[in-house]
Structure formats: C-alpha cells, structure tokens
Amino acid sequence: MTAISDILHLLFTANLWQATLSAAILLLLPALGGVISERSGVVNIAMEGMMLTGAFFGVVAALAWHNPWLATGVAILAGGLMAAVHAVVSIQFRADQIVSGIAINIFAAGLTVFLINRIFGLQDVGHLGPNEGLPYISIGGLDQIPFFGKVLFQQNIVVYVALVLLVLIHVLLFRTRIGLRIRAVGEHPQAADTAGINVFFIRYSAVITSGLLSGLSGAFLAIGVSNTFVPNMTDGRGYIALAAMIFGKWTPFGAFGACLIFGLGEAIYANNSIIHASPYLLSMLPYIITLVVLAGVVGRSSPPAADGIPYVPGSE
C-alpha cells in the first residue's frame, strides 16, 4: 500500500506535472502533425521516422554551428523532407500509405545510424554544451505562481511553442477556411475537387506540415532534452503519438489529452527512486489506463471518411 500512497503524494507535486507536460509535448507535436495529415486524408504512421530524422539532423547542425535556432530549423526541415517522401509516394504514386509509413520508419532508423558511422566514425556523436541546446525559459512573474508557475511557466521554449501551436491548429482546423478545406479533402476529396479545391496541394501541405511538426519534436528531444543523438532515441514516441491521435479522435485537444496520460505515465516512472513499487509494473500504468478508458465510453472513433484512400481525379 505504500506504493499507492507514494503515488498519491506524488500527484500533488508540481515536479511531477512539470515533467508530465514536458513528456506530453514530445508526443503532442507529432500527434498534431498526424491530426493534420489524417484530417486531409493521408494516413500517417511515419511520425516516428520523421521525428528521428529531425532529431539526428538537428544534432548534426547544432554541433556544426553551435546555434540551437538554426539547428531547430534544420531539424524541422529534415522532418518535412521525410514527410515529403511520404507525400510523393502516397499522394502521387497512390501507394499504400501504411507500407510507405513503415518504410519511412525503417528508413529513418537505418539512415540515421548509418550516417552516424559515416560522420562520426565509430566514436560518440558529440554533445552539445550546456547553453547550446534549446533553452528552458521561466516566464518572469508567472513562474512564481504556486504550483502552476512551476508546471506551466518553467519549461523548455518548445513547450510554449507547442501549446500555442495546439491552439492555433485547433482554430485552423475548425474555424478557418483552410481548415474547412483540409477537412473537406479528408472527408470527400471528390467533393472538394469539384468545388474547385486543389486536393493534391492540400494533401501535400498537410503531410509536409506533419513532418515539420514531427521534426520540431525531434529537435526538442535531441537538442532540448538530450543534447545529443542516440540511435532510435525516439523510442516509439511516434507510435505513441499515433495512438494518442486516434485515442483523441483526430482532434488536437483530444490528442493532447491522450498525450498527457502517456506523459503522466512517463513522469510517474521517472520518480521510481521515491516510489516503493516495482518501476516496471508502474510503467505499465499509462498503457493499462488507456486500455481501460478505451474499453469504457470513449472507445469508438471514426476517422475522416477518406483517410487512407488515394485520390484519383475523376473517380467516383
């Protein structure tokens, strides 16, 4: 029973929620990308690969130029480039989007490790110096608010950016003309096309945007949290983000909620030094909670109607 009281105690500490939010943001960015991509009708399970590629090139750039902003730009572009591959293969060649996504994930895993060996030889990938990564910023004044100040306002800059993006993307998708068009393309591309909307342009943009967001997440992971690159450092986060996106019913805030559950799990696990329970059993918690939640009321989810279906102009 000590384990339970440990966890209960933990739940009231700002540290835990600060870590939760940070971990959740790593998942949220690719999940948001997934939302945009799938809302436009392109299944995207390649967030893992896009994120990993972003992380790698972000670190390479950061080591070369010692400038986290430039490096973040490179990471975002690298993620976008991977997404562009997915877009070409799945939109232009109408390939199976699952196959393409899996291929990108494998490709990214192989490419990054292979390039480590080419660039760094059999040595370490270098480490960024203490002030060379993306900075953690305390927002003056607000960070002094008890509890919430620490949770919300003492975070990496990417966290703030991501939270702004979360709201922006929600507004974009559900309040703006562009969002209406993206959703129209994902629901019924023929209808959108006949209404004079450029389906291919929207899908390309959406998929590439998902890559940019995943790349940003990769940058956060590599030059914000870890300050180096290690093979497969994304560690399945892209897949968890995929799950969060579906769990969140293809909505930005829904995905965010799911990301918080997974983030909380990670954060609880990180506290294993002060919880008297098997850290391994503890680690199962978020996944079991998710299963239980899915088994309950929120199970059913239906994706955009044309998700995964390549668009052939003139078809019905």
Binding site: E38, V43, D96, Q97, I98, V99, S302, P303, A305, A306, D307, G308, I309, P310
Partner: peptide
C-alpha cells in the same frame, strides 16, 4: 489498402 485499415 491503408484505407481499409484506418477507415470506417
């Protein structure tokens, strides 16, 4: 295809 897997 992916469609069948992800769609309704």
């Amino acid at each position: 295809p992916a469609a069948g897997l992800m769609s309704e």
